[in-house]
Computed example of a mutant assay.
Amino acid sequence: MRSRRSKNKQNGMALVIVLWMLALLTLLAAGYSRMMRTETILISQHMQLAEARAMAEAGVWLAIQDLLAMEVDRKWLSDGREYTFTWYEGGISLRLQDEAGRIDLNTARAELLHGLLQDSGIDEAEAIGLLQAIMDWRDRDNLPRTAGAEDQDYRLAGRNYGAKDGPFNSVEELRQVLGMNDSIFAAVEPALTVYSHQPGINPVVATREALLAIPGMDDTAIEAFLAARASSGTAEELFTGSTDNRFLSPVRDQVIRVRSTGTRGENQVLLEATVLLSRNQDDPFSILAWRER
């Protein structure tokens, strides 16, 4: 009798152990399955991100190919308008912006820079001070303008550097100028370049922000011009008779900024390439800058 009870007890214990083992194995299997699902999702997301980046790169090279074509054969204008198209199982968005349509930090007339700073929302005294600090940064001497900034002013402001007394190497360098802050920079950056090397801008390809910086221009005139340009592709005649030619430049198609966005699923990659066009048979173009934003 005792032997039978002992045997039943052992069988019961064995059953409990087996049930616990089955429960543990079930938990392990569920955890492994969940882990595999997570890894599958992550791999899929990484693949789509890589595909989006490849599409963005393809957009850049397609844009360069178009820029090198004869003007009559070109599909895309370089005035900043957006072009979108499907590419395999994703999409590409392109914007081509001629740098001749931006205000050159190194060569632009002071009046253009002044107008741009005024449009950034700061008051007149601050605009003049910042303008003169920019001029002091880019000129070759160490003589401060009335409201400008040279080496001593930077030291008094606690900076460990002084005025450069030389050209800007990039628009980003403008952040170092005394008086510049993030909000002003965000407002003026879309209108600026260091690649046009012109005192004025070409209205055929100019950005809205750059056009508004021209003395005497207002929102109504600019919007009318942009609407006409969007429909005709040029509309240069709207500027030739009413605007001071000192602020305009005929130069174009030398340096183009290409912004290409590749989209695959929920993933997007934006690449920005600045391209110098030489159209030399052996070396038709060169990349001046390339970054992922």
Rank of each mutant, 00 (worst) to 15 (best):
E126I: 00
R95H: 04
R159V: 00
T84Y: 11
A273Q: 07
L238S: 04
L113P: 02
T40F: 06
R109D: 08
T38A: 11
D136G: 02
T107E: 12
Q97G: 07
L143T: 06
Q281L: 15
E82V: 14
A63N: 05
E150C: 00
N267D: 10
D119H: 12
L131I: 10
V72M: 06
R264Q: 15
V258Q: 03
E124P: 00
Q10I: 13
L131G: 09
F285R: 06
A63C: 10
D283Y: 12
W290L: 12
R109G: 13
M217S: 11
N181L: 07
R257G: 00
V16E: 01
A127H: 04
L276D: 08
T86W: 00
A221W: 08
R95M: 07
M1A: 13
D153H: 06
W76I: 14
S120T: 04
L68M: 08
R81L: 04
L226V: 12
R155S: 07
A54K: 06
R81P: 02
E39M: 12
Q48F: 03
D79L: 05
A108I: 05
A127S: 13
G158D: 11
E172W: 00
Q48Y: 04
A56N: 05
F285E: 09
E189K: 05
T261N: 04
P190Q: 09
R5F: 14
Y195I: 01
N181Q: 07
